[in-house]
Amino acid sequence: MHRFANPAEFNRLADAILPWAKVVMAAAFLYGLYLALYASPADYQQGESVRIMYIHVPAAWMAMFTYMVVAVASFTALVWRHPLALLAGKAAAPIGLVFTGLALLTGMLWGKPMWGTYWVWDGRLTSVLVLFFLYLGYMALWRALDEEDKAGRAASILALVGVVNIPIIKFSVDWWNTLHQPASVMRMDGPSMPVEMLWPLLTLAVAYKAYFVVVLLYRMKLEINLRKLSVLSSLEVQG
């Protein structure tokens, strides 16, 4: 772990991963979208509207996955004072916010024709909205305090407090009566959808994850460069 605490070492690793991640991202997006929008069947109940699922479900997975990344990064930063972990959390949060927003938005656009409403306050929808606000709160705390160290610590504590929301989102559809349907893919007795629908879904999930890796690494490199810059300019002021 401590090898990566060195920014130069991190930069080298990031530059090695980035081209591969970009290739995976481009290939998975093209192939996944081709399958999802063209080469997959309509649904026996929902018809063509089912294609919204291929955008919506991976976005919702990303929303939760990214939060877990922020939470683990925050934990590492708080316990081991690992500076890169702190930056990883800071860099990941806006990505999670965007995908949570995308999941909410596509969910609303899907809900109107299927359910007959854009929004209901059921367990699943409400807990995902809470996730959206947790991301906003985390990002706001980073900006609320002038001292980087304190801001990072406060934001990290919030991220850890909010981690309880992840199992709530996952199991809301099992614990309570909700308008949102229960899980179709990650369920005990195997997916309740045929392979020709599962495949585009999983391909796009890979594409989203590769996108996450690309954007996260760029954002972390940016943060490191900004830090170098501020050290340099403070040296200049002194000199």
Binding site: P41, W115, G116, R187, S192, M193, E196
Partner: peptide
Amino acid sequence: TVLAKHDENYAPPGTMPKN
């Protein structure tokens, strides 16, 4: 108010879902 609640099953037209 009546809202439709679709279940967790997906299947191509003309077939029945697994569950």
